[in-house]
């Protein structure tokens, strides 16, 4: 009726390569890393004795958010050594999510599987490594596979579940959560943008005014995506903190 041609999903994820093997997602990832590094360099350049302003204030607020909102809430004081890793994770994911709503870019780099997969595998390696380092190989796997306080007979049931949930489901859900949230948001924005465009250009002039409805929805969803971009970065980081905390201190 509206002659709405929705492009296949591959179409809205396809980007020409700017340089050999460097496409938009790669550019966004590199830009995210560069922006973070530049912001932190500018922040460290400022005189630290004065009250922080501008970039330094921003960087310090982020650091304090990660310290107080993520590390202290999940790992406690012992986990403060993990702050730099969690901070870079948070900042990188946020800066990869944010282009989803920035005009011209309009593509969250995390809506492609590559970056979430890389990060969650990295997190998997790190929390298993931290657990093995702190409790020894046997101790770590004992605390993971045979959690204390479970009746002996139940181990037949608990151990496979724990193995699957800790070793397989955790990185998978971490990866899929970030990827699917961002991809769903991206598809939603594309859908409403296409809908309002189709209505604005409808051959039947009666339909043209109705184009503002999906447009308002688009604006609302863009605001929602701002929240989602932040929330997904926060959730990825806090789950990482929980996993690392659990691997390092199994009694908690």
């Amino acid at each position: 009726m509206f002659a709405l041609e929705f492009p296949p999903i591959n179409e809205i994820l396809r980007w020409r390569e700017v340089a050999p093997s460097l496409n938009k997602v790669g550019i966004i990832a590199v830009a995210a890393a560069l922006i973070a590094i530049v912001v932190f360099i500018l922040a460290t350049r400022q005189d630290h004795r004065k009250a922080p302003t501008g970039v330094r204030n921003f960087a310090e607020t982020t650091v304090e958010f990660v310290e107080n909102g993520i590390v202290m809430q999940t790992m406690g004081r012992d986990g403060l050594g993990w702050t730099p890793f969690l901070l870079s994770l948070f900042v990188f994911i946020y800066l990869c999510n944010a282009p989803g709503i920035i005009p011209i870019l309009q593509m969250p780099a995390t809506a492609r599987m590559a970056i979430p997969a890389f990060l969650s595998i990295l997190v998997w390696v790190i929390y298993n490594g931290a657990g093995i380092k702190h409790q020894g190989f046997g101790g770590y796997f004992k605390s993971v596979l045979f959690p204390p306080g479970v009746p002996k007979a139940l181990y037949a049931l608990v151990t496979p579940i724990e193995f699957i949930s800790t070793i397989i489901v955790r990185p998978f859900s971490l990866m899929v959560r970030l990827f699917a949230n961002m991809l769903a948001g991206h598809i939603l924005l594309v859908t409403f943008a296409l809908l309002s465009e189709a209505l604005f250009q409808a051959r039947d002039k009666v339909l043209v005014p109705f184009g503002v409805l999906p447009m308002f929805m688009l604006i609302f969803l863009t605001g929602f995506e701002v929240l989602v971009a932040f929330l997904q970065a926060y959730i990825f980081t806090i789950l990482t903190a929980v996993y690392i905390g659990g691997a390092v201190h199994p009694e908690h």
Binding site: N10, L13, L87, S88, V91, R112, M113, A114, A117, F118
Partner: peptide, 26 residues
Amino acid sequence: GPNPIAPEGKELLWGGLSFVVMAVAI
């Protein structure tokens, strides 16, 4: 175009490299 689910090698490379560089610098 690309498969919507499967990770692409070049993106994996660029994303991973930039994250590692950033994380090490930070």
